[in-house]
Computed example of a mutant assay.
Amino acid sequence: MPVHHATEQTFPPSALFASSADVALTSTPSSAANARRVVVAMVPENRELADRGQLLLSEAVTNVVAHTDSKLVRVFLSIDDHSGALLCGVFDTCARVPGLSGKPQDILAPVDEATEVAESGRGLALIDSLSDAWGFAKVSDGKWLWFNLFPQSQPEA
């Protein structure tokens, strides 16, 4: 899946959808759980979308808490009323771009033998594999990591 790099003008979107949430959290270990609750409140009728959203948002928020000195984690969520897609964004005040080394070319660096057994470091790989699109936007006071999730077709009963 290609990485889509957003620009400062594209995230957060200037035109908000009818259903959106913008939540500021302190950067603490409980931030991920608080962010998961927001996802469930946004899409209570679509368990599959809520599950993917919770997992990926939790990974993104945990990355901020564990790997930056940002005191603030801002979570932005919106639902596209036409497609049902969930747009998620996580803001932090660290200017370093997401990736293993902070270099754009290393965003999806291959997993080597040392990292295959690591207990962490797979957040962006999960976001890449489970989202429909993702990227990041550098802004004057930090960056946004964002991803889109489209609802999976529901099995017929």
Rank of each mutant, 00 (worst) to 15 (best):
P2T: 10
A6V: 05
T7K: 13
E8L: 01
E8P: 02
Q9E: 14
T10F: 14
F11E: 00
P12S: 15
P13L: 10
P13G: 08
S14L: 13
S19I: 14
A21V: 08
D22W: 14
V23W: 04
A24M: 04
T26A: 08
S27N: 09
S27D: 08
S30I: 07
S30F: 06
S30M: 10
A32T: 12
A32E: 13
R37Q: 04
V39W: 04
V39P: 03
V43A: 15
P44K: 11
E45L: 06
R47I: 13
L49R: 11
A50L: 14
R52T: 05
Q54W: 15
L55I: 15
L57M: 09
S58L: 15
T62A: 13
N63V: 10
V65S: 07
V65Q: 05
H67S: 04
T68P: 14
K71P: 12
L72M: 09
L72Q: 10
L72H: 10
R74F: 00
V75Y: 00
V75R: 01
F76D: 13
L77D: 03
I79N: 12
D81P: 15
D81K: 15
D81C: 14
G84S: 06
G84D: 03
L87G: 14
C88E: 07
G89Y: 00
G89N: 02
V90D: 01
F91L: 13
F91S: 07
A95V: 10
A95C: 08
A95T: 11
K103E: 09
K103G: 04
K103V: 01
P104V: 06
I107R: 06
L108T: 02
L108M: 05
A109H: 11
P110M: 02
V111C: 06
D112M: 04
A114F: 07
V117Q: 13
E119A: 07
R122F: 11
R122D: 11
R122S: 06
R122M: 10
G123M: 01
G123Q: 01
L124N: 05
L126D: 03
L126Q: 09
L126K: 09
L130G: 03
L130P: 05
S131N: 06
D132W: 08
G135V: 02
G135C: 04
F136T: 00
K138L: 02
K138V: 02
V139P: 00
S140D: 13
S140L: 08
K143A: 10
L145G: 03
W146R: 05
W146L: 05
W146K: 07
W146D: 04
W146T: 03
F147Q: 07
N148A: 09
N148F: 12
L149E: 02
Q152M: 14
Q152C: 11
S153N: 06
Q154V: 12
P155V: 09
P155M: 10
A157C: 10
A157Q: 12
A157Y: 12
